[in-house]
Write a protein that binds this DNA or RNA. Structure first.
Lengths: 210, 210
DNA sequence: ACCTGAACACCGTTCAAGT
DNA sequence: ACCTGAACACCGTTCAAGT
């Protein structure tokens, strides 16, 4: 019961403007706990102690809420890639490897969100901002690749093809972890980081013995 | 109204043992048309002109039906990989490239099924046979890689790491096509085959200039 | 053995009504 | 402006009952 400078915390934080964020955070928690199939808008509303119709004040429909989760995911991914690359300012190849490891780490940390980001949602259902977030993430990777390309590091391919190759490898590896396809296929849970490093090395130097 | 040797086609092909297959085929059609979100068990039953409770005679629940779709998909994938590789008996690297292109082609042809196969379903929900189909598909790829490895073609890595790298790259590329992430990111719909070939080449020879 | 129809709990979405 | 409660059409699943 301290008075002084402390402001009274409102008993329910909703009803006052931040229900939208509360719903998004609740939805992400439910998503990771129960998967997309287990995420109902009504459950999200229940978690926020609000009627099942309340979310419609903040989201056009369920897809719109999921789209916001996807947007959050892509924002996080773009930030994470950029940050990892920034740790190797003078070494574009190391920057690429680091960003790949960051990608895999993020995917493993939020498997269901990653699944939702890539395929869980009909792309046409996303709005402008949500699409833009995905494009930004990809552009971040293209920039990292472009840095190495302009330094003469890579083979003669346009930056896009190089970027798609790098993206494919790390996205594929992340997906395999995410869906536990890998855990079963390999028969052992090799550390994600270790495998990501090995894949990255092979990606840079090629499968073929030279 | 020809008599002779022609047997009367039963008016409804169900009620006689093949409802299970009818449901699976109908489910796949609905899956590709409407996505996982749009696929309801009741709609599948309607398509088969059968009551909504009838599918429960043939599948434990909805997940079980989806699992059968996944199984079908993995069977098709394994067959397709093996067939593509078999066209290059004396050239393991070419076999690997061909199987990669086959993978991408299959994914593009059935995007929603591919999405379902990788992440759309909780892996623990799959039964023994369904899991086995996925393992068989991966084993097919490992075998292709192993052929090249034992011929001294590849760098010194265990076959599993090599296979995971190849799988990651082609799976990632396929996923990017499947989810249309790529179409948007590249700003143009480059032919899947062309890009798959370029990625395959870079995978074999490495991103780095030598 | 295989299928039906009713029933139940749940869901997404809408809308008049409340404050 | 923001939320509620009732309502509607739909869904997954179960179960007694029909042939």
């Amino acid at each position: 019961m301290t008075a002084g400078t402390s402001r009274r915390r409102p008993p329910a934080a909703y009803h006052h403007g931040n229900l939208q964020q509360t719903l998004i955070k609740g939805a992400e928690r439910l998503l990771e706990r129960d998967g997309v199939a287990g995420l109902s808008l009504r459950a999200v509303a229940r978690e926020a102690d609000v009627s099942h119709a309340a979310p419609y004040r903040h989201f056009r429909d369920k897809t719109d809420l999921l789209g916001e989760l996807v947007r959050t995911g892509f924002d996080r991914l773009a930030t994470s890639l950029a940050r990892a690359a920034a740790r190797h300012p003078g070494d574009p190849a190391a920057a690429l490897l680091a960003s790949g490891r960051a990608y895999v780490r993020l995917a493993v940390a939020s498997p269901n969100l990653t699944t939702l980001m890539f395929g869980g949602l009909d792309q046409n259902a996303l709005n402008q901002e949500q699409r833009a977030a995905g494009d930004r993430a990809f552009a971040t990777l293209v920039a990292i690749v472009e840095r190495g390309r302009s330094a003469g590091l890579y083979r003669d391919h346009d930056a896009l093809t190089l970027a798609v190759t790098a993206w494919s490898a790390m996205h594929g590896l992340a997906t395999l972890f995410t869906t536990q396809s890998l855990a079963r296929a390999t028969g052992s849970r090799r550390a994600a980081d270790e495998l990501a490093a090995a894949v990255g090395h092979l990606l840079l130097h090629g499968l073929l013995r030279r």
